[in-house]
Design a protein around this nucleic acid. Sequence first.
DNA 1: CACTGTCTGTGACACGCTTCACAAACTTAC
DNA 2: GTAAGTTTGTGAAGCGTGTCACAGACAGTG
Lengths: 235, 235
Amino acid sequence: MKRVTDSASGDLTMTQNEVLTPAMVPDVVVLRLPMYIRALTQLLESRSMVVSSHDLGTLLQMTPAQIRKDLSYFGRFGKQGKGYDVKFLRDELQQILGLDQNWPACLIGVGRLGEAIINYPGFVPEGFNVVAAFDSDASQIGRKLGGIEVISMDALTKTINEYNISIGIVAVPSVQAQPVIDELVLAGVRGILNYAPIAPVVPPDTVIRNIDPVLSLQSMTFYLMKKGVNPLIPG
Amino acid sequence: MKRVTDSASGDLTMTQNEVLTPAMVPDVVVLRLPMYIRALTQLLESRSMVVSSHDLGTLLQMTPAQIRKDLSYFGRFGKQGKGYDVKFLRDELQQILGLDQNWPACLIGVGRLGEAIINYPGFVPEGFNVVAAFDSDASQIGRKLGGIEVISMDALTKTINEYNISIGIVAVPSVQAQPVIDELVLAGVRGILNYAPIAPVVPPDTVIRNIDPVLSLQSMTFYLMKKGVNPLIPG
DNA sequence: CACTGTCTGTGACACGCTTCACAAACTTAC
DNA sequence: GTAAGTTTGTGAAGCGTGTCACAGACAGTG
């Protein structure tokens, strides 16, 4: 992956790296990019202009080598002897992930969980906007929630096309989750954030991410037991 | 995915495998065990008595070889020519993870998110009970929530010892998350489920799991863009 | 009982990711 | 300007995990 190091640019600011992403980027690397962005944003807020892979590593509990290797998949963002320009690197990574744009999303299921999701203030500043909310329960239709109105599942495809929605957030009970996911895929949604405790089946060109606290807890207990931590024996 | 199920005898009962766990089990394998348990429970509900690694694989979108290899780290649970006794295997895996016991947990932060967590009906059937809820906001103290009373952070250590709590669920704003986690660790909690969008620092003998929907979405967009899915350009 | 078909458990191999180590590039100090 | 110190980018080695392939065990059939 040779890239032109344009010389004589005395500043850390680099020329536009075209991000062509040769599709050879490991998935794990892509999963880590958002963490880098978050750390860089944090550094930016504390007025840091430049950061080394070493310092980023201590901040994120990773080895400097891994950070450098990860970034090298996308370009040459740093400068020897100095490090990375914080703002520049963050902007580059955001562009690589498409986070410099606004992603409209829809929510399916406005129960207790769905309500918490739609009111969660953490999505909007990152460029994710829930612009529509659906529910199969007729008594929920028409209810206002976080500034938007709950509408019927019948209007799913129409609404998704209208708002150009490419991300669906699934917050329905387990039994309805797979059917809802199928509907979303059929309607053209290619990214799904699933909160239901199931192992969903999606076509290969669809990206799915599962949020499953119970799974996290259930693998945690294995290590707790090994460490001699004892739970409460029932009885 | 259909399994032959009923055999005449049902004499698949196996000898007691001592589970000594030689600490050589890869972490990824432990992370998958809960998924196996969930699938087995599902099979049990649909009256399946026996399942092969092949059928489990199609159910979970995994290769049969991986399932067999994973299980082989803990013992020999299957029978050649037949498969695995569903109930037996599930019970064994639950015991390995310590899920045959009851794990008391505490919640820190009873905002919108904390409220949704404490009312989430999915924890209790899996053996996780939120037995105490804390908040630093004085106006929240004393409020009843999901059957339990919100108490002050001052009572953290005392309460954790009293109820023998080994798991802490952190649902506080980002800036307070690390301090709260430090407090939990100091109080003796060795397992932490963190909902705050940060990269927490914990001692090596502490198990931490992060629930971070924003990170999931931010890596999703990379693939959506590659597939030519276009978000809404702001403007 | 023998013979055919099925499925597990596992050593060996293959692959992908992490870590290492170093040349090259840049900074700082004098 | 020179020398010493710092940090990146990256081939190559190392390591952990997934996959393969097959011997062995069991079921089913007649």
